[in-house]
């Protein structure tokens, strides 16, 4: 597993549309780093540049101190799990997983061993001789992961690998991928636009905006202490407060006796395990409060909202910032 250093990486299309604008990123050996951001922010382009499938305009990438910018894709050892899996339909599961090893001219017995180990790790060993076209989406995703694991890559790249799966399967696969990355001590870069995925799995996560890395840190850091209003709002809901700061809905407490803000209850939305309350706060407009459980409250009644100032974050700005 390699230590990865990306410096001042830029990429533009047609010479005008800047997709990456001087991105710097360091990924430590064995670290699972997530890149988050809206569509078109450049996160997939960064991944494809690392894989060598797209050429950067400038900047450098090094694996363990060795510059790999001039290496063709096949020499980089940056195995990728593609968004649509990209499994070859003319090869069966075993041959798909063995492909990279065959390219490396690995001895036959070792190929057999490594392929089966990788398939076992994703619990697909009994499908080794199946045609990939007969597998479900979740099974194909596992095979794509096994294919990447089999070559023991210097860097594992995951391009929104769970986006085509249903919600339940996604939860299972999240835990699986996290387990495998930890067990194998993989250096991995995972691209997604699903903040829950990033916050629940990442060692560190970066938020990209307009081709730049807006902020990178542990999930706790970027969620609770976002550097700017874009990061704050991309990672979760933010209420603007009369004091000028912002606060997450779950950091507000509702009280009938006292609090920093007086508020009139407008609406209630029930989610089973939790509840969301929408208040009208003079000077701040509509304010959302999220709390576990669902205590009885009266719509239209005046309440108080309270919060700890340690949890204040940048307030949402104009729509241009989105």
């Amino acid at each position: 597993m390699a230590e990865v250093l990306i410096e001042k990486l830029t990429k533009s299309y047609d010479g005008t549309v800047k997709v990456l604008d001087g991105v710097d990123l360091h990924i430590a050996q064995g670290e699972l780093v997530f890149l988050l951001g809206p569509s078109g922010c450049g996160k997939s382009t960064l991944l494809r540049i690392l894989a060598g499938l797209v050429t950067a305009d400038s900047g450098s990438i090094s694996f363990d101190g060795r510059n790999i910018m001039s290496l063709p894709p096949e020499k980089r050892r940056a195995a990728m799990v593609f968004q649509n899996y990209a499994l070859w339909p003319h090869l069966n599961v075993f041959e798909n997983v063995a492909f990279g090893l065959r390219m490396e001219k690995t001895p036959r017995k070792e190929i057999e061993k490594k392929v089966m180990e990788s398939l076992e790790q994703v619990q697909m060993e009994r499908y080794a001789r199946s045609a990939v076209t007969q597998l479900s989406g979740g099974q194909q995703q596992r095979v794509a992961l096994a294919r990447a694991l089999a070559v023991e890559p210097a860097l594992l790249l995951l391009d929104e690998p769970l986006s085509n799966l249903d919600a339940n399967l996604r939860d299972t696969m999240r835990r699986e991928i996290k387990r495998i990355c930890t067990e194998r001590k993989l250096t991995a870069l995972y691209v997604t636009h699903d903040r829950r995925e990033a916050l629940s799995m990442a060692d560190r996560a970066g938020v990209m905006h307009k081709g730049k890395l807006a902020q990178i840190g542990t999930p706790d850091e970027i969620y609770n202490h976002p550097a700017d209003s874009f990061t704050a709002r991309f990672l979760g809901d933010v209420n603007g407060l009369p004091c000028g700061g912002g606060i997450r809905p779950e950091r507000l407490r509702i009280s009938e006796e006292k609090g920093k803000l007086s508020a009139r209850l407008l609406e209630r939305a029930f989610f089973g395990d939790s509840c969301e309350w929408l208040f009208e706060v003079p000077g701040a407009g509509k304010v959302l409060v999220r709390e576990l459980g669902a205590p009885a409250r009266t719509i239209g009644k005046e309440y108080f909202l309270d919060y700890d100032e340690a949890f204040l974050i940048p307030a949402p700005e104009s729509d241009d910032e989105k």
Binding site: A51, G52, L53, P72, P73, E74, K75, A78, A79, M80, F82, N84, A86, L87, W88, P89, F99, G100, M103, E104, R147, V151
Partner: peptide, 18 residues
């Protein structure tokens, strides 16, 4: 044929000819 299948082959160590 999705081009991604050929990209995947490059990504897993195959040169242009292979």
């Amino acid at each position: 044929t999705p081009e991604e299948l050929e990209n995947a082959a490059r990504n897993f160590g195959a040169g242009p000819f292979r």
